[in-house]
Design a binder for these strands. Structure first.
Lengths: 349, 349
DNA sequence: TAGAGCCTGGACAACGTTGTCACGAGCGGG
DNA sequence: CCCGCTCGTGACAACGTTGTCCAGGCTCTA
């Protein structure tokens, strides 16, 4: 049997373990290859006796269909990719989970990767997923140039951007109402008597940060308050920088009486600063935080629904895969102000 | 050109979009198929001029190698699977991220899925990943019978269980020291003068819950305290049940003066109950919680390092793939007691 | 200048699956 | 009794890639 021997050798050389194939099952059951395929896929046209023989062979050999081969033949992989910033961030966990649930409902698997807020890594990941021939891609942009995805989109990879818009290409995106949310949050502070309000946010090149700043400015303008430069601080959201920014706003001759924070990482740091601070300072944060209601005072936030973002994006992706949609569109989801105490504190002076 | 026409028809019928293949690139560049392959994979033996011609064709056509086909040919998929309970749970986010980082360091992609704490869904997911021919599998068990993975493991799928041990099969697993951690946490309460200490945990069929209960009992026994049945409550960790359990322990003629909570979901609910409660009750929770230091009093916890769990498991998986390891092993990672105030409160009476 | 050896490039088979098609058996109706 | 039909089954090609192997052209040396 040189044929068999050769085959075994090859296997033990290049793989680890010999997975049985349909050919093996067919040989054992004494039927043709296609008949096994029919049984495995539940296609009609097989007598019960034949089916049983095949099934027994499958069980005996521990056969499992190789989906890689199937995909190669069929074209669709029944999997979608998700590129996000950091799975460990509590904002993205629910988002990822929501995408997964929608994928599951459509019989698809989710492959996800973290870009670590690095544009190059985002691209690397997105393209790796395309090489795996995912049917669609949900991207939370880290970079601001997504032309690298153009050939993929043209080739039929349904692509939806979430949380931040796509850069330099025209594509579907699902965003929160960052501008409106920030505006509402700041207006809430103004309504409680504050006029000197600080804003601490992320780097302005990040779309969400820019939009939230725009909302802050709009709310201040609505109230006829002119904004001092010292009240605004934009930059990386590492604790050290945020801490310094907060302390500067709170000192000096005309300190702010309230702070609006641009995302959850900033909010947490500012809470720590305020806890060490003697004077009461009002605080409204963008993004909800677990246990926000257990703090004293409770934390008032502008909450975005990250699960809804994920769900909406994934649903749009599958509708696009089904060929129902026309041109790219931008969807905006509302935010919600949740008053818990910290945003309702009156000005201290 | 009937050949070309037919090919195009086929494509637009069964796929969406015509991805160019190496054949197309080869035709455009006027070289052979294998030469394109060599360029794409950076193999030696191609003159710079030829390479440039090929590269131009690749760019012009927007070609991207089809990894499905590659995998079929090569045997390894350079991807690993992760089956966990719920990505939205803050305990699993960092774990997943840690696994991803290790995978990335080994040039592999991570595919993950949530079992939603459902044994059937765990099996479905695990087998789907095997059908995709992942090289390895990290499983956080939901069910307690993993014999369904036996054929896969025999076939060479490196498998590591995390957080909870595998059921009814012999396999690698990486666990936290649940017993020791709980014992230390409860001993901490005893050291601060408590004798009537409650325990609220998850369903006892879950391994971690059983181990933590065992730790509780051991610490109590060490101190010569006999445990009343009313002090222990095991069951689903939905807020309603936990709330009821806590309130029962805190009422009656001999209420507990301290509570040890069996996981983060329980802890959060108990904090809420205690906040509404007049008498001071000490609390130590298993699992750390974000912002635990900002509560008043700060929350004392027995922290497990979920990222380390993931990292350790993934590293073991890749070492197994490299064929370095012998038999299955059980690794146990230490926990760490973090005192922040709530666990150091003295008994109220 | 001829022969040896090297380097580049291409033809071909194989990976495991599925779609197409054809074949043979059984059967009912003309 | 034969034609045509249905039904179960299997042979074969194709999906896009990579490993093997061979051919042809080049350089270098004797």
């Amino acid at each position: 049997m040189p044929e068999t021997a050769r085959r075994t050798d090859r296997h033990s050389a290049t793989r680890y373990g010999n997975r049985p194939t349909m050919k093996d099952v067919a040989a054992r059951a004494g039927v043709g290859l296609k008949t096994v395929s029919r049984v495995v896929n539940g296609e009609p046209g097989v007598t019960p006796e034949t089916e049983q023989r095949v099934q027994e062979a499958i069980d005996a050999l521990g056969f499992r269909r190789n989906d890689s081969a199937r995909v190669l033949r069929k074209g669709r992989t029944a999997s979608i990719g998700l590129v996000l910033e950091d799975l460990a961030d509590p904002f993205y966990g629910p988002l990822s989970r929501a995408v997964e649930e929608v994928a599951r409902a459509h019989g698809a698997l989710l492959i996800n990767g973290s870009s670590a807020e690095d544009a190059e890594r985002e691209q690397e990941l997105g393209l790796a997923l395309c090489a795996r021939r995912v049917d669609g891609l949900v991207v939370i942009p880290a970079g601001d140039d997504h032309r690298y995805l153009e050939p993929e989109i043209r080739a039929g990879v349904a692509t939806v951007f979430v949380d931040r818009p796509a850069g330099r290409i025209d594509a579907d995106c699902v965003l929160s109402d960052n501008y409106g949310g920030a505006r509402t949050g700041v207006a809430h502070l103004i309504a409680h008597g504050h006029r000197r309000i600080g804003f601490i946010g992320d780097m302005p090149r990040i779309h969400t940060a820019a939009e939230r700043l725009r909302g802050y400015r709009a709310a201040m303008e609505d109230a006829g308050i002119s904004v001092a430069d010292a009240w605004m601080s934009l930059g990386v959201t590492v604790p050290e920088r945020v801490r310094t920014a907060a302390e500067e706003m709170l000192s000096g001759p005309e300190p702010v009486t309230a702070i609006f924070t641009g995302n959850n990482r900033v909010t947490v740091t500012v809470i720590r600063v305020l806890a060490e601070h003697s004077r009461q300072v009002a605080l409204v944060g963008f993004d909800d935080i677990e246990l926000a209601d257990l703090l004293r005072p409770g934390l008032t936030v502008v909450a975005q629904d990250s699960a809804a973002l994920g769900r909406t994006a994934a649903e749009r992706l599958f509708r696009r895969l089904d060929g129902i949609l026309a041109g790219p569109e931008r969807l905006e989801l509302p935010t919600r102000l949740i008053a818990r105490g910290s945003g309702e504190l009156p000005p201290a002076d």
